[in-house]
Simulated assay, not measured.
Amino acid sequence: MNPPTSIKTAPTGIAEKSGIRAKTRIAPHPGGYRIAIEPMSMVVRPRMLAVALVSTIITVILFLTSVGVSDFPLTPIDVARILLGGGTRVENVVVFDVALPRALVALLVGFGLGLAGSLTQLIAQNPLATPDMLGITAGASVAAVTAIAFSTTSWGAWLGDLGVPAAAMLGGVLTAVAMYVLAWPGRKANSGINPFRLVLIGVGMTWLLQALTQFLLSRADIRDVGRAQVWIVGSVANVGWSNVWPVVTGVCASIVVVIVLARQIGMLSLGPDLARGLGVRTGAVSTTLLLTAVLVSALSVSAAGPIAFVALLAPQIALRLAGTAVPTPLVSGVIGSALVLGGDLLCRTVLPGGLPVGIVTAAIGGPFLIYLMVVMSRKASV
């Protein structure tokens, strides 16, 4: 029997075991450190990790607080105890059947919109390129209004049979397909979609679809108009478990795509020309990321309506807090969750009852949009 193999650590950091040598090197990198464990390497940015950790803690606290705000008030500690299986029968009914679906929808929708906004901003290289501005949420609104207000008509009955969530998702996907076809560069497909062309077409489709939505509302019954208006503003009230599962699917799928394409996303942030020089298939990667953003944003809108400005605010807040060159998708998603959960808490505790969360995000997002426009104009004039 051979004696056990010993492990020797050389002063240079080389470990030998069974004849296999593994080198570990830590070297400075812009904004952090590069850790190389052959044959793999990764970049660790302490500031971004700190922002992600703090944002996650705040989001968890907001989530537990949101679950506890009901006719049967509970503290975050009580909510955590109940979620871990230590609740009474009454507490379980209040949390799992009433409060938890609303909090989960707010958490997931915020994450999905924040992540989708970061991807579209990355593809277009423009902080204003979000699902709100590119027509995706406007297309979902047209289909949802049709399903709500014209489900009894011959031409709108099939959307009514699908239900509002499915109709909204279908409208968002069809709008994104039309936008992508119009922005496709034709024979120059290998160069990817032109960001400026994509934004122009998206803004034009947004205004066109918003006008169509207003026309549909003007022709609908007044009782259906009220329901449609609440959905258009964006609200996480009156949701159930049936609204949770589609968003869970979209968010999980988008997280997997972002993790798998993390390296390509990092290179794509350097610009399409440099990314192609580094071997990235920019056309295929941009298409995959855009489809991912469309899927997760459409599913998010189908559950809670087009909650305004979350897809714009979350990536830009994440960018400024983490100090990165472009918004980080996963951190943007966590910031988006905190925005929607916090806005919903304000609507339920401070503001008059019944207000949808979209009013809070729009009140914050409007001034922030003006700030972004001023910053962009100053950069362009330098």
Rank of each mutant, 00 (worst) to 15 (best):
Y180F: 15
P165S: 03
S118K: 11
G139E: 02
A166P: 01
L100N: 09
W184S: 14
A99S: 15
V164C: 03
M133W: 00
I123S: 07
L113G: 08
L170I: 07
I193D: 04
Q210C: 10
L212K: 05
G172A: 11
A140N: 02
G171L: 02
A166H: 06
G114V: 09
Q125R: 15
L174F: 12
F215A: 13
K188S: 14
A138Q: 12
A168C: 00
A147F: 02
G204R: 02
A116L: 03
G156N: 11
A140Q: 00
W207L: 14
G156D: 08
P127A: 08
V105F: 03
T146H: 08
V142T: 07
F150R: 07
L182D: 09
V142R: 00
R102H: 10
L122C: 13
A189V: 13
T152K: 14
N194Y: 04
M179C: 15
T146Q: 04
G186N: 09
L100D: 12
D132N: 07
G139W: 02
T153V: 09
L182K: 09
S151A: 14
V145M: 00
G135S: 10
L100A: 09
A157C: 00
L104D: 03
L122Q: 14
D132M: 07
L208I: 12
A124K: 00
W184G: 08
